[in-house]
Design a protein around this nucleic acid. Structure first.
Lengths: 345, 345
DNA sequence: GGACATTCTCGGACTGTCAGACTTTCCGAG
DNA sequence: CTCGGAAAGTCTGACAGTCCGAGAATGTCC
């Protein structure tokens, strides 16, 4: 490259102006006399000057903050649910912790609000957020699908930590259930299992637009060596329902959320992991040691906060024109409910 | 909030040292007397000092380059493919245009590189990017799955505009095929179609980990009123293959990529849209007006550039610890290949 | 005791921005 | 006619850190 690239300072020297006048002119500040501004822009163009946006952003942040690392507050909004299971409460805690840690790393503070408790309505939340100068809102999952259309979204950037909710349609971040189940099934196939069986509560599949079931069938269809076991997807299932399905279809490994199924398998003569395997689809739900998927709620919370803060940094409030979903694959967790190697022939 | 955060300079004042000695000590430079280094580290820990990685990276680059490196540039890397279909070339152009527009909005410039053309190897690309001071790399889709592990990713932030490639595992952004097909099928059901049929080239499903097929079956399984038509997923299909499938299973609406199928349907007696419907799964591939899915490549490119620049703004280079995929649902495009209302009873 | 080498530390310089301060000009009031 | 305040236009201090040349202090050798 020939010689140093032109900078604000070199332009300023050439023009006989201060670097601030040049900076202001190029940024369109009204402080600068229009004739001076035109002169600066022309010289910049002719010199091939290109602003460094990273340097600009850093210097701006540095000047604005006056040395304090504090940049703002974002809100984590939870929904009061009396019957929330304990594992879900732990999931929410992990999400919030991840969001908090990442927010802190990025110079933000995270404050929690619980809608539906202590008279906190959506309208009241709106008022509080506005009066507190909070513009970023990260929404924790809710079993019932809350309606947040009443928040004045022109003032807020928001992100769901769940699959898309649409009321309103915001960006979202969640686990990649589809891809994680496919990867888990591949792993099980590598361990020599040939008849995996999936059991699900219907609502758990529905709220993910059937991704568990879809991934399961997609895997079966695409692997000739896998003998298809119809998944058990029931409104609500009992030991009887499960056992009937298990005896009838004889899967050699079972995947599902409820680890109580291990007892039912063993009551029916199976020995885990000697004769059959078990994999939890969410290790936060396990009640005993077993293999399974860690949906990484802490990482999801962190990514959610990160994406939200990036929106704030771009000054993007309002309902996004193209809402997107960011997914992170679950992490496989080994456990004592699987054989450790394929059976020898 | 309590006072300014401790900085190198404030630590230096407290310790009676220069800011350079403090900086060197904290970075482990051997220039500093070990006893002094220990003193500095202890004081930093006690003061709660947190280094700003973005400032550090910027200053380092500033000093190293002496103003000669160009900045504020990100690279769009394409792969030379002789047999790339015309629609794919248009898809790539849309991706690049979206990335370019968004980069410009965010104060960056996008430059294109084509690996495999004019002797541009991955190693040579690495050298060029480094010498040009380019740290952000957005990777356009490739039909063959390229291996970019040879880039020195410690120096670059990268993002794929395709489904995850894993060589190496970076963040990615792409269409939400699964969710888009589900939504399309729901739309068709609302128009009164009861026997949708899907035809795909096998590779097109495989490279999306079977999401087209999975969404199709998930929809069938979850809607009692839909009579199941087995999808046609073939290595390569001809008019004969398609026609046999069409005649045998009698779908009332066909979804697929290749609009030539409309001719084949009509050759078999169907009248589109009078008796049968057709939906394109990628309107960039259509050769005639029809309904279908706009995969929004321009928006995907824009989002990709945005996510990449956010990584640069956080000074995050290297292979991410938790690579994520960001998906945007396709936009439905109405067209003359569907009935405009459900048939009256 | 002077010359030289080594070790340890310091300070200039710096892809841009913010906000207060300074200079110049203009105009109304006395 | 003079003076003071306001506005317009521009300038300067300061700066989440790093690199590298240079200076000061110390030790060794002749």
């Amino acid at each position: 490259m020939s010689g140093p690239a032109p900078t604000l300072r070199s332009l300023a020297r050439t023009l006989g102006l201060s670097r601030t006048t040049v900076s202001d002119a190029l940024r369109g500040s009204l402080r600068v006399d229009p004739a001076t501004a035109a002169r600066v822009k022309k010289a910049a163009r002719e010199a091939g000057y290109r602003r460094n946006p990273l340097a600009g952003a850093l210097m701006s942040e540095l000047r604005r903050s006056r040395g304090t690392a504090f940049r703002g507050v974002i809100a984590a909004v939870d929904f009061h649910e009396l019957d929330r299971p304990e594992y879900a409460a732990r999931y929410h805690s992990e999400l919030a912790l991840g969001a908090q840690t990442r927010a802190t790393e990025l110079g933000f503070k995270l404050e929690k609000f619980i809608v539906g408790r202590a008279g906190l309505s959506v309208q009241r939340l709106d008022s509080i957020l506005q009066s507190r100068g909070i513009h970023g809102v990260i929404l924790l999952p809710a079993w019932g699908e809350p309606d947040l259309s009443n928040l004045d979204w022109t003032r807020f950037a928001g992100i769901y930590t769940d699959y898309i909710i649409e009321r309103p349609a915001l960006h979202s971040v969640c686990s990649d259930h589809y891809r994680s189940l496919l990867a888990a099934l591949q792993r099980l196939a590598a361990l020599g299992y040939t008849r995996p069986g999936l059991f699900l509560q219907k609502h758990q599949d529905e709220r993910l637009q059937y991704r568990w079931g879809a991934a399961f069938r997609a895997f079966q269809e695409s692997h000739a060596g896998i003998r298809p076991v119809p998944p058990l997807i029931a409104e609500k299932f009992s030991r009887e329902t499960f056992t009937a399905w298990f005896q009838r279809h004889k899967p050699d490994v079972v995947l599902g959320h409820n680890t109580e199924a291990i007892d039912w398998m063993e009551a029916g003569g199976a020995q885990v992991p000697a004769t059959h395997g078990f994999v939890s689809l969410n290790v936060l739900m396990k009640t005993r040691p077993c293999a399974g998927l860690d949906l990484l709620p802490r990482q999801l919370g962190a990514r959610g906060a990160e994406l939200l803060i990036a929106q704030l940094q771009r000054n993007e409030t309002g309902i996004p024109e193209w809402p997107s979903t960011t997914t992170i694959p679950a992490r496989w967790m080994d456990g004592p409910t699987l054989r450790s190697a394929p059976p020898s022939k």
